[in-house]
């Protein structure tokens, strides 16, 4: 469970978005949290949630394909790391908001408070520092 990034961990700030069975492995699904779209992904048993809006062209990431630990936007193919929302390819240059996800008793909960990773120019991060589309390729390590 990846809920350590939000400041609050009370159950009250999480919204239930469905049962685990509602989310197919290896794909994304759009849910509404606080009136705004959130894309929930289930990959290798883990759950991730991102704002359902590509920071490049506003397409819905929930309709994108999952590539390893990333999702590729359906419109122009920009990849985002599912855990941090950081773009790993162009044309996206802005991090997408991510939300903590909790699974309890077979129900999936998404936090109402999102997080943004630091801008790339600030942290000095480079596109090629992410493993290529999240494959298990040992030569490349995540920094």
């Amino acid at each position: 469970m990846t809920d350590t990034r939000t400041s609050r961990t009370n159950i009250e700030s999480f919204v239930m978005v469905g049962r685990t069975g509602d989310f197919a492995e290896g794909s994304g699904k759009r849910v509404i949290v606080n009136g705004r779209g959130v894309a929930v992904f289930r990959v290798a048993g883990r759950f991730f949630a991102l704002r359902d809006r590509c920071t490049h062209g506003a397409a819905r990431l929930s309709g994108g394909s999952v590539k390893g630990a990333c999702v590729a936007c359906p419109r122009h193919g920009a990849h985002f790391d599912l855990e941090t929302g950081v773009p790993t390819t162009l044309q996206a240059v802005v991090n997408v908001e991510t939300f903590a996800v909790r699974v309890e008793n077979g129900s999936v909960f998404v936090s109402t408070e999102g997080t943004f990773a630091e801008p790339a120019w600030f942290s000095g991060r480079r596109l090629d520092q992410w493993s290529s589309q999240g494959e298990e390729h040992d030569a490349l390590s995540r920094e």
């Binding site: 590729a72 122009h76 193919g77 162009l90």
Partner: peptide, 9 residues
């Protein structure tokens, strides 16, 4: 390869 111009571009 494909970082700047992903296939879906």
């Amino acid at each position: 390869f494909g970082r700047l111009i992903p296939a879906g571009d």
